[in-house]
Structure formats: C-alpha cells, structure tokens
Simulated scan of single mutants.
Amino acid sequence: MTTVLVVDDSRISRMLSRQFLLQKQPTWTIAEAASGEEAIARLDNVTPDLVLLDLNMPGMGGLAAVGQIQAKCPSARITLLTANVQDAIREKAESLGIGFAAKPITEDRIEQIIAEFGK
C-alpha cells in the first residue's frame, strides 16, 4: 500500500493533488498537511512513500522541512511542487536529492510525478 503526504498551505492545491493522485492510483492512501510543521507532526502517525511538498508556506516552508522529513522517513521520495521555478530552487532541490515539479497542479504533472516515483 502506497501512502502519499501532500503538504501545501492551499486547500485547493491539496484537493487537486488528492483528486489527480486517486484518479491514477485509486488504492493509494493520501494524507494531507497544511504546513511544514504539520507535515513533521503527521510523520508520527503516517509513513509516506511519497511526499509532495510546497515550497512557500507560512511558518516552516518546504525546503526547511526536507531535512526533518528525510530524517524521520529516509526511504520517502520527496518532490518539491512549487510555482517558484527559479533555477536556484531547482538546483537546491537537486542538491537535497529531491524531485522538482512546477505548479500549477495538473493531471499531467501528477502523472509525471507518479512515473518518476515508480522508477
């Protein structure tokens, strides 16, 4: 059973991610968090295989949460899903060993993330 943790301060973004993930993988379990802090707390009860992580959130942003998520769930694949598509952000994601996907969240974008996860 694959579990995905969707971390985004936008409820609409979380809903779209959930919808598109379940359209492609209806047996997957989807958990949600609205901030980096909430994501870290959710790891006490959820062990994600895949984390979709927004960059800019109030409080702890995505990049600040990466290290803690990796420490608690070292086998989880993390993809930064953000509208901030600057080269520096892409390079930072790469240096952290995480994926990068540009918003907006679309069915095709989620399909690409799922395909990368399967590799």
Rank of each mutant, 00 (worst) to 15 (best):
D44G: 00
I12S: 14
R11D: 15
T2N: 10
R14T: 10
G59V: 09
L55T: 00
F117T: 05
L63K: 00
D49A: 14
V6Q: 09
P104M: 03
S95M: 06
G99M: 04
P26F: 07
I89D: 12
V51D: 06
A83L: 09
T27A: 14
A41D: 05
G59S: 10
T106S: 15
L52K: 10
I105S: 04
D9E: 10
E94F: 04
K103W: 11
L55G: 01
R90L: 03
F117W: 14
A102K: 09
D44L: 03
R109Y: 00
L50D: 12
W28N: 04
I40S: 05
M15A: 14
S10G: 13
Q70F: 00
D44Y: 00
A101N: 02
I113P: 05
T2Y: 04
L16F: 14
S13F: 09
S10W: 11
E32P: 09
Q68E: 14
E38K: 13
L63C: 03
L43D: 05
N56S: 14
A102P: 11
G99A: 08
L22N: 04
I78W: 01
N45R: 08
E32H: 12
Q70M: 14
L16E: 08
P104K: 02
I113L: 11
C73R: 14
I78H: 02
K72Q: 13
A83V: 13
V66Q: 01
G61R: 10
L16Y: 12
G67R: 05
D108P: 00
D87H: 07
K119I: 10
K24Q: 15
G59D: 09
K119Q: 15
S35C: 04
E94H: 14
I110E: 07
G67Y: 00
N45Y: 03
G62D: 07
A39I: 06
R18W: 04
G61M: 11
F117D: 03
R14D: 09
P104V: 03
M57T: 08
G67P: 00
L52P: 10
Q23H: 12
A31Y: 03
A83H: 06
E107F: 12
M1Q: 05
Q23V: 08
M57F: 12
A39V: 06
Q70R: 15
V51L: 05
T106C: 08
G61N: 13
P74H: 12
L50N: 12
G36S: 03
A93Y: 07
V66G: 00
N84V: 13
M1K: 04
C73I: 02
I12H: 11
I89T: 15
K103D: 01
P74K: 08
G61A: 13
L5H: 08
I113E: 07
V85F: 02
A102S: 15
I78M: 03
S17C: 15
Q70L: 10
L96M: 14
T106A: 06
D108W: 00
